[in-house]
Computed example of a mutant assay.
Amino acid sequence: MTEEMGRRERKKLATRRALVDAAVELFTEQGFDGTTVAQIAERADVSTRTFFLHFPTKEDVLAGEGDARVELGLRAIAEQVPGEGPDEAFARAMRTMIDDSRPEESELGRLRNRIAQEAPTVRTNILRRRHEAEELFADALHERFRDELDELGAKATVAAVMAATYAAAITSINHGASQAALQDAMHRAIEIGMWGRRRDR
């Protein structure tokens, strides 16, 4: 049963990646507004219905594997690490998510950033998804460290670190940074967002 579930999950992930890759190709070739969901599905060799099983809207394709990465971060926050406080737990969760990204995602990030300058619906979707992720992370952090961190403290911690890593990602993308350089910048941003500077480790 576990093995079968693993196969299903791998197939689901492969389909999502095929849809993202197809969307990137089409958005690059004919623009965001000029591309339809049906065209993305056809390029990925799946049905339009299958597209909507993976992504609610065309805008959501630009998020890539963002939902899966949020789930990864939530699992990391919930993990019980002896002696770990809320700051360390969230920093570890962010590092886990950053290190999980694929090299192709830097290309997707550049495309998403460019399209967001032209398409209001994409900008709105980015902000919505970021807000939803912040809420989920703050709730998870507060739940695990309820005796040490109140609701405001959890929200402030998450907002500061996510704002710093987002700024690092956008700056790196705008400078054409490699995936490795982008990840390094985001790691540094965690330290800045959490503690105000990069700590010696």
Rank of each mutant, 00 (worst) to 15 (best):
Ala91Ile: 13
Ser47His: 02
Gly83His: 01
Phe52Trp: 10
Ala68Gly: 15
Asp45His: 10
Gly73His: 07
Ile98Asp: 09
Arg43Phe: 04
Arg102Trp: 09
Gln117His: 04
Ala93Lys: 11
Glu84Lys: 06
Phe32Met: 12
Ala116Leu: 12
Pro120Asn: 07
Glu65Phe: 12
Val70Arg: 14
Gly64Leu: 04
Gln80Gly: 08
Thr57Pro: 11
Glu104Arg: 15
Asp87Thr: 00
Ile77Arg: 13
Glu88Phe: 10
Thr96Gln: 06
Val70Tyr: 09
Ala68Ile: 10
Pro56Ile: 05
Ala44Glu: 00
Glu42Lys: 15
Arg112Thr: 15
Asp67Ala: 13
Arg92Tyr: 01
Ser106Cys: 08
Lys58Thr: 06
Ala63Glu: 13
Pro82Ala: 11
Ala119Asn: 13
Glu104Phe: 03
Ser101Gln: 14
Glu104Gln: 12
Gln30Gly: 12
Ser47Gln: 06
Gly64Tyr: 00
Ala119His: 14
Thr35Gln: 01
Ser106Asp: 11
Pro86Cys: 03
Leu62Asp: 01
Gly34Thr: 09
Ala44Trp: 01
Glu71Val: 13
Gly73Gln: 07
Phe51Pro: 01
Asn113Ser: 07
Gly83Leu: 03
Val122Thr: 03
Ala93Thr: 13
Asn113Val: 00
Arg95Tyr: 04
Asp45Met: 10
Gly34Ser: 02
Gly34His: 09
Gln117Asn: 03
Ser106Val: 15
Ser101Ile: 06
Ala76Pro: 00
Ile98Thr: 04
Asp100Gly: 01
Ala41Thr: 12
Arg69Leu: 13
Arg49Pro: 00
Glu59Asn: 00
Ala63Cys: 09
Asn113His: 07
Thr35Leu: 03
Thr36Gly: 15
Pro103Ala: 10
Thr121Asp: 15
Ile98His: 05
Gly73Glu: 07
Gly64Cys: 08
Pro56Asn: 00
Arg114Thr: 04
Ala91Thr: 06
Gln39Thr: 00
Glu104Pro: 04
Ala76Val: 14
Val81Thr: 07
Val70Ile: 15
Leu111Met: 06
Gly73Ser: 01
Thr121Cys: 07
Ala93Tyr: 08
Ala116Pro: 12
Leu108Thr: 14
Pro82Gln: 03
Thr35Met: 03
Asp45Arg: 10
Asp99Glu: 14
Arg69Met: 12
Glu71Leu: 14
Glu42Leu: 13
Gln30Val: 13
